[in-house]
Design a protein around this nucleic acid. Structure first.
Length: 671
DNA sequence: GATCCTCGAGTTCT
DNA sequence: CTCGAGGATC
């Protein structure tokens, strides 16, 4: 057997197994991207070696065989599958083929829709009444899931207005993210197994033997095509078909647009890809359909896929790799965070080698062990996330991950409070990791903002015993700095100058820089506003600190305890002697501005200024800045590339402002 | 006592 | 961005 033939056979075997897991068990072993990659390789091989193509190849049929629990139903008209496009060039080719076949020189009008990651179904109506619903199955025959489908609210039991004698409506059953999260939260509370993704949850729900269970699952449907159609007139474009659906009371996707030619398709694709994370449901690409029905008929179909439509998939945002090790990092508060060390892998355009595992509970939940094959995703296309492990691929000798009994940095005991997710190093100031992280926090941009005082420099200074507390920073000698690695005289001078500049700061920044547990920027600002001076805060009792808004007993105790400790008092006094200062005044009633009482949330990229500048300006006028959108938000200011916050604002009906709206706010008007 | 809203803390890569 | 936990609210 040639090497190509052997590879083809191996690919078919793998694809058949994945098909079984995906279609029959509803429990895929690998991400869709991996499946798509295998299929792509097989297609390429078969294209290069046509003699290897056989009727049983997964490229030659729509895969999946019906299960046994439900009756079989034959579709009046087969449910088609779609050819996939992965790159822009594939779409260009598709459009060229369409125009060649239509002998069209003009641009073709396409109907573009999101491609939902759910389950295709066909709902049959006779004289407007719901008769049955079938899954897609192998395209010709599916399973009768009528009893379950009847429980889905977005499938009407009767069509509005005049309906044809018989019509099959095709759509996608899916579970919105919100419902999925709720379902998993309930499952977690009940100690049940969690669903891996919304698609699996929807599949599981639809294939329940007890419709009462399905009824409790948050399923929804968008309709997008017609199958068998007897009586009446079929609309002459895809767009009008969807309008007819709406008239009958059937949901169609509101993101659907008519676009012209390849340029229009690709623009739609990019626009939707950018907003993908903010949609309420999971999509894995977009679909372009030739809009005119006459053109669709002229184009016809090849095997089971129409020539007049294509699915343009989003690039793989998940990848498989191996978990090499798990290390525990120590943060400034002593929290031990397990970090996954991975075999480097490309995900979403970047090589990922590390991913946080958050805490031990998370490791338990995901059942991760060292040596496992794991699925990596870039959450929000930025932060790498270990999605899950594949226990079925676990090698013998895969090691369990154990919380170390002692701190990996200083050797002090590790303690985990009852009911707390985090484990902490008890070494405190003894632990060099905690010292280094505290110093980094102190010097960070939002604290004292000491330019050039980065991780490497702090590491060296601490390791050489030149630096232990923030107070030491301002007593560093330029000659000593210049003697360090990668530090010339010039760099040393720059650091000294940066230290000098940072001495002039503000009380909120200073309080934040101290790193008191649970005191972040917002709480530091509240404390500063309430007490006005550091002296007043230092002298305050727990009861007095409790009067600060948003401060409860726990934070009050932390604050009081911090200032009671002699070591901390000494550091503060030394800092002040070194010249660290700020303008102090008596506590001021919060500045009354024209925007008093408003809570504004900023999102996206603004053209005229940074978000920070806009935020400062709004606060200066008395507005409160919100970090997330809630029903108490007055306005959301959305720049370009706004994401989930914009979406949430729309859901909650919060007024959304553009930059001109922001300008109005800054003039003191309320749009 | 439950639920919602915020905030804090830790993290990745270019 | 995500998770966890503190605080406020009903």
């Amino acid at each position: 057997m040639s090497t190509a033939a052997a590879r083809v056979a191996a690919l078919r075997e793998q694809l058949a197994r994945h098909d079984y897991r995906y279609y029959v068990l509803d429990d895929p072993e690998v991400p869709d991207a991996e499946y798509d990659r295998l299929m792509l390789e097989l297609r390429a091989l078969e294209a290069a070696h046509p003699e290897l193509v056989s009727a049983d190849s997964p490229t030659q049929r729509v895969s999946g065989k019906p299960g046994t629990e439900f009756d079989e139903v034959r579709h009046g008209v087969p449910m088609l599958s779609l050819d996939n496009a992965f790159a822009d060039d594939d779409v260009v080719d598709f459009d060229r083929r369409v125009r060649e076949r239509l002998k069209s020189t003009a641009e073709v009008e396409y109907c573009a829709e999101p491609k939902l990651d759910g389950l295709a179904i066909s709902v049959r109506y006779e004289r407007g009444e719901f008769v049955s619903t079938a899954t897609r199955g192998d395209g010709t025959t599916g399973e009768d899931v009528s009893a379950n489908a009847r429980t889905i609210r977005s499938i009407p039991l009767r069509l509005r207005g005049d309906a044809p004698a018989t019509v099959e409506i095709r759509g996608e059953v899916y579970m919105p993210f919100a419902g999925f999260r709720r379902l998993n939260a309930e499952a977690a509370a009940a100690g049940e197994k969690l669903f891996v993704n919304p698609r699996n949850a929807a599949a599981g729900a639809l294939r329940q033997l007890d419709p009462a269970v399905t009824a409790k699952r948050p399923l929804a449907v968008y309709f997008y095509a017609a199958g068998e159609w007897r009586g009446g007139t079929e609309p002459d474009t895809q767009r009008r078909l969807l309008e007819q659906f709406n008239a009958w009371g059937l949901r169609t996707n509101p993101e659907t647009r008519l676009v012209m030619g390849v340029a229009g398709c690709l623009a739609y694709y990019r626009a939707l890809a950018a907003r993908r994370e903010s949609l309420a449901y999971q999509i894995d690409g977009v679909v372009y359909k030739v809009n005119r029905r006459a053109d669709q008929d002229a184009l016809g179909q090849v095997s089971r896929a129409p020539r007049w439509a294509v699915a343009h998939k989003f690039p793989a945002d998940e990848a498989l790799t191996t978990l090499r090790d798990v290390e525990f990092q120590v943060g400034r508060t002593g929290v031990l965070t397990p970090v996954a060390r991975l075999e480097p892998v490309m995900v979403g355009g970047a090589t990922v080698t590390n991913a946080t595992l958050h805490n031990m509970d998370e490791i338990e939940r995901k059942d991760v062990r060292i040596g496992d094959t794991v699925v990596i995703r870039r959450a929000g296309d930025v932060i790498p996330e270990l999605v899950r492990s594949l226990p079925e691929r676990r090698p013998r000798g895969a090691k369990r991950i154990v919380l170390p009994a002692t701190c990996p940095v200083c050797g002090s005991a590790v303690a985990r409070e009852e009911d707390e997710a985090a484990a902490r190093c008890t070494g405190g100031f003894v632990c060099s990791a905690q010292r280094k992280e505290s110093l980094r926090h102190f010097a960070s941009r939002r604290a004292l903002d000491i330019e050039g005082m980065g991780e490497k420099l702090i590491d060296q200074l601490v390791d050489r015993g030149m630096l232990a507390t923030p107070a030491d920073l301002f007593e560093l000698k330029p000659e000593a700095l210049a003697a360090l690695e990668r530090m010339g005289e010039k760099s040393a001078d720059n650091v000294v100058a940066a230290l000098e500049r940072s001495k002039h700061t503000t009380l909120p920044r200073f309080l934040y820089a101290l790193g008191i547990r649970d005191v972040g920027e917002a709480t530091a600002a509240s404390l500063a506003a309430h007490f006005g001076t550091l002296g007043a805060l230092r002298a305050a009792s727990v009861e007095q600190i409790l009067e600060v808004p948003d401060v409860g007993p726990i934070i009050a105790a932390h604050v009081h305890g911090f200032f009671a400790a002699p070591a901390n008092r000494e550091v503060i006094e030394r800092l002040q002697r070194s010249g660290v200062h700020w303008n102090e005044g008596p506590p001021v009633a919060r500045a009354v501005g024209p925007l008093d009482g408003l809570t504004v949330v900023l999102t996206g990229t603004l053209a005229s200024m940074t978000r920070e500048q806009a935020g400062d300006a709004l606060q200066a006028m008395g507005a409160k800045l919100g970090a997330s959108v809630s029903k108490r938000t007055s306005y959301v200011v959305a720049g370009s590339d706004a994401g989930s916050k914009l979406k949430r604002a729309q859901e909650l009906g919060i007024p959304v402002l553009d930059e001109s709206g922001l300008a109005q706010l800054l003039r003191g008007e309320r749009p």
